[in-house]
Design a protein around this nucleic acid. Structure first.
Length: 642
RNA sequence: GCUGACGUAGCUCAACUGGAAGAGCACCGGAUUUGUAAUCCGGAGGUUGUGGGUUCGAGUCCCACCGUCAGCUCCA
């Protein structure tokens, strides 16, 4: 007999060798039908795998809102994909095929990349495998048997060799295909009804760019047809929000071969958004006691040698510039930190001066690898809302809290949720391990005091120190990387920064590097996609457009524009001889927050007919001054309207 | 940087197997003066990403380069 504890606290006894499927059947026929897997002592198990003698067991039921159920389904779908590929491309090498956030992928070693037609054929073959309803059969085997089984699969053998001695080696078979796999899987391929292959692309074996490239196929799967179509619709929605497309349509920015890749030209409307963001963050920083500085865009290489950027960061820096026979070569700055240490070191500092908070909203240039560039999200000239906090070791925690406060303020205003990631020392770094030990411990301690849950990104730190990364969620649930807080004991050391303590002796300050938006480029790209181009009025480049109904109201409309501009509102007039309908449509398509329709009635009464974006015919008529006051207040409060 | 796909007017896209570069929108001109999501007529606009090559003939085929896109790697 074996005893299992159920989530409701009850205990059930079952004959030895019983599986979770048996358990579910014992509880009820409905549960048995809905069951797809089981959580056994917190681990996801196959439904039909014999249970251990004493275990906490929860039945995982079919459903697209259950991460475990989806995990098993997608993992199984990946196997079905491999089954189909092996069938259609008999010599294909088999890499990894895990479930991922919104689906799954599988990597194959094939001589030619898969074409879109191949994907169609594979998907059709998968449908046949599904129709066969093969069961997923788990087997636990020993190493020699496994080596024998996968003797023709070098990638699997490599993986096999990494499984530690003593750990269970299991395989799963669905019809003609057997894979080295930990599981779990759904009971049979028949469980997989709603799936789709999405794309194919190259991917390095083990994610290592020195290894061979495999061909990866991405796909997704759901239990419910509606979930699948909702997901596909969401992909379409994401495409519609693409900031590169909206940036073009809304005339915000452009890229040009003449500039080179990754270099943005901000058009007037895009520049207005930049201004709004810049003024906002500058106000917040001033309130927090920051001081603003400016440092040169190019600097002698000796500066970057001393900071450690050369060579630790050299591959991301533009090449050196040297004038014939003229001393040291120069570099364009990829970061502001070395420059800010100069300002710190320009005079003797007292502990009374600390914390010293310096900020520079500055353009820096990074030579990003061409394949990584992506619209505004990855560029080669970036505008950081950069800041460096110089403080005593005792002040580190408080200073990190000031950064978190800023982030809360910014995220709160935008109505965004965020989460934190703790990133530890990377392989390529400067400084002794003991220094890193301390920096990581200190940062972690501060993070624990913040009291929010956080993830850990091992090896994700900056080359000079560990960091906290802020990931926020947009309107359609995607995560973005923006703010970052980095703790640095290395640069103060390298630049021999000091302050005189209360003991009248020199001490080394600690440096915190931080950015709240991250970069204005990426943050703007994020905002465009988050708002789908329909910016709240305080961010909108054109806040109001006044539409006189006929030429007769043109003068009166122009006067209204003047009133609004005097109130600090960015207002335009549309006096084109097109119909009112045409101009309203144009205003809506340009996502102008407020369209003011002005006809004879309004001019006579001193009012405007306010058509708020998206409100269609629910417009209100109000006196010009009232509208001006209202919009001014909305802008002041950075309200998320209209 | 790597693998693959792609590059035709400002934008979105046509142009059968190589056989006279086209449409809609945007833009310009004219008419129209409009009450809540596209008024009508006309016009201009392209050395088909760049440079080579094959061919009687190249947007179409081949090569190189540039750029874009997807993914990998990297990252604000």
């Amino acid at each position: 007999m074996l005893r299992v504890s159920l989530p409701d606290g009850s205990v059930k006894e079952l004959p030895a060798g019983s599986s979770a499927a048996d358990l579910a059947a014992g509880i009820g026929a409905g549960l048995a039908r809905a069951a797809v897997a089981a959580k056994v002592n917190g681990e996801l198990w196959d439904l039909n795998r014999p249970l251990p003698p004493d275990a906490d067991v929860a039945i995982v039921t079919r459903g697209d809102d259950d991460a475990d159920a989806l995990y098993a389904l997608r993992h199984s779908t990946a196997h079905v994909l491999a089954t189909a590929v092996r069938d259609l491309f008999p010599g294909a090498g088999i890499g990894f095929g895990p479930p991922i956030e919104n689906g799954f992928y599988y990597d194959f070693e094939v001589p030619e990349p898969f074409t879109p037609e191949d994907l169609e054929k594979i998907e059709a073959r998968m449908a046949e495998v599904v129709a066969e309803g093969y069961t997923f059969d788990r087997r636990e085997i020993d190493r020699t048997e496994a080596e024998d089984l996968f003797s023709d699969d070098p990638l699997k053998l490599e993986r096999l060799a990494e499984i530690p001695e003593g750990e269970t080696i299991s395989t799963y078979t669905d019809g003609p295909f057997t894979d080295l796999c930990r599981g779990p899987h759904v009971a049979s391929t028949g469980e997989i009804r709603h799936f789709k292959l999405l794309s194919g692309a190259g991917a390095y074996w083990r994610g290592d760019e020195t290894r061979q490239m495999l061909q990866r196929i991405y796909g997704t799967a759901f239990y419910d047809k509606k979930s699948l179509s909702a997901y596909l619709t969401q992909l379409e929605e994401a495409k519609k929000r693409d900031h590169r497309k909206l940036g073009q349509d809304l005339d915000l920015f452009s890229f040009h071969e003449e500039f080179g890749p990754g270099l943005v030209a901000w058009h007037p409307k895009g520049a207005r958004i930049q201004m709004a963001l810049r003024r906002w963050i500058e106000d917040l920083l001033l309130k927090q006691g920051y001081e603003f500085v400016y440092t040169p865009h190019v600097a002698s290489e000796s500066l970057f040698r001393r900071s450690g950027h050369l060579p630790a960061y050299a591959e991301n820096m533009y090449p050196s510039m040297q004038e014939d026979g003229e001393g040291d070569a120069f570099r364009v700055k990829p970061m502001n930190c070395p420059g800010h240490t100069m300002i710190y070191a320009a005079r003797q500092r007292s502990y009374r001066d600390l914390p010293l908070r310096l900020s520079e909203i500055a353009n820096v240039y990074r030579f990003e690898r061409s394949g990584t560039l992506h619209g505004l999200l990855r560029v080669r000239m970036l505008t950081m809302d950069d800041g460096h906090l110089f403080c005593t070791p005792d002040q580190v925690e408080d200073e990190i809290f000031t950064c978190i406060d800023l982030i809360d303020e910014v995220m709160g205003t935008l109505g965004l949720e965020y989460r934190l990631d703790f990133s530890t020392r990377p392989e390529k770094r400067i400084g002794a391990d003991e220094v890193w030990d301390r920096a990581e411990a200190d940062l972690r301690q501060a993070l624990d005091r913040v009291g929010r849950p956080y993830g850990v990104d091992v090896g994700g730190g900056a080359f000079y120190g560990p960091k906290i990364d802020i990931k926020f969620k947009d309107a359609i649930g995607r995560e973005w990387q923006g703010a970052t807080i980095q703790l640095d004991f290395n640069l103060p050391e390298r630049f021999e920064l000091e302050y005189i303590g209360a003991d009248n002796k020199p001490h080394r300050p600690v440096m915190i590097h931080r950015a709240i938006f991250g970069t204005l480029e990426r943050f703007t790209g994020f905002l465009i996609e988050h708002f789908a181009g329909a910016f709240p009025v305080w961010l909108a480049p054109e806040q109001v457009r006044v539409l006189p109904i006929t030429d007769e109201q043109a003068e009166g409309a122009a006067a209204i524009v003047s009133v609004l501009r005097d109130a600090g509102v960015s207002a335009e007039i549309d006096v084109r001889s097109d119909t009112l309908n045409y101009r309203i449509r144009d205003g809506e398509l340009n996502k102008v927050p407020y369209l003011l329709v002005v006809g004879g009635r309004e001019l006579e009464a001193g009012t405007v007919a306010v058509r708020a974006r998206g409100a269609e015919k629910k417009q209100v008529v109000m006196p010009v001054q009232e509208f001006a006051d209202r919009i001014r207040e909305e802008v002041r409060a950075r309200a998320l309207v209209p």
